[in-house]
């Protein structure tokens, strides 16, 4: 198996990186390009940009932001926010994204996953699932966690992969922004039903959180504020993961960047 990936996430609103608690109370932080370059130099394995207000406002993620980041970035870039169809996906790929994440639109019309996979290949299609705990399992929610859908998260993950998703970005809305660790039960449950890579998202703060996500079956761990606020650098986190026996991509030279 490959290395466990560490993925900083840039939640972008109007060209600025923001980070809220439980998807609400957005705070302005920094310019995406500045952070993208810093994380690349620190040994990030991939970068995710989510345009957090795109779906809510019914528009596509800002092409200018994607293009500006792609200009300086030479690691894989996933972009999500407002992707409603194949044309939107092509526009983001043309702007420099390597993969597109689709969430709200896929819940509304799951066949978008088949069309995307046929057009750009499943390796470029990421299904973003926002899940919230409920009696006996997890429910899919959309619109930044504001709207329940009634869908069971495990059934949706399985269906999404059957339809064409090549990867799942799995966010626990309960854990997101709390710093209380990933929802490892959710990760383990989804791992049981799909074989594509799973990116753990929501609540990861300490190195132990990432270790537990790896043990629960995640292929990657995504986090935002711990990196933005410089509680840890990407290379420090990866060095400590390696000490726990988690296989990570690691180069000594990165420590000079810390």
């Amino acid at each position: 198996m490959g290395a466990f990936r560490v993925i900083p996430c840039l939640d972008v609103d109007q060209g600025w990186v923001v980070k809220g608690v439980r998807f609400q109370q957005l705070q302005a932080m920094d310019r995406p390009v500045v952070l993208a370059q810093r994380y690349r130099n620190e040994g990030a394995d991939e970068l995710v940009i989510l345009d957090v207000s795109a779906s809510v406002e019914g528009r596509l993620a800002q092409r200018a932001t994607v293009a500006a980041v792609a200009e300086v970035l030479d690691i894989p870039l996933t972009v999500g926010g407002g992707v409603r169809g194949v044309d939107d996906a092509l526009e983001l790929l043309a702007a420099g994204a390597d993969k597109v994440a689709v969430n709200t639109a896929a819940v509304a019309d799951p066949s978008i996953l088949e069309r995307l996979a046929q057009c750009v290949g499943r390796q470029a299609v990421v299904l973003a699932i926002d899940a919230r705990r409920r009696e006996g399992g997890w429910e899919v929610v959309t619109h930044g966690g504001r709207r329940p859908t009634g869908r069971d998260a495990l059934a949706w993950a399985r269906e999404g992969v059957e339809r064409g998703a090549g990867e799942i970005l799995l966010t626990s809305v309960d854990q997101d922004g709390t710093g209380a660790g990933f929802d490892n039960a959710l990760l383990a449950a989804v791992r049981q039903v799909v074989s594509v890579p799973i990116i753990a998202s929501g609540g990861g703060t300490r190195v132990e959180d990432f270790v537990e996500a790896f043990r629960a079956g995640a292929d990657a761990g995504l986090a935002a504020s711990i990196f933005h606020r410089q509680q840890t650098t990407v290379n420090q986190l990866k060095q400590r993961l390696a000490a726990y026996g988690v296989p990570v991509r690691w180069e000594e030279a990165w420590m000079a960047q810390g």
Binding site: G2, A3, R5, D45, R122, Q123, G166, E167, P197, D219, R249, W250, E251
Partner: peptide
């Protein structure tokens, strides 16, 4: 598909930048 980072094992010395890198 094989998607992700993999470590390289060089069998020849053509490129110094390859061996043991991801």
């Amino acid at each position: 598909p094989h998607m992700g980072w993999a470590k390289i094992h060089a069998l020849r010395a053509d490129f110094a930048s390859l061996h043991g890198r991801w």
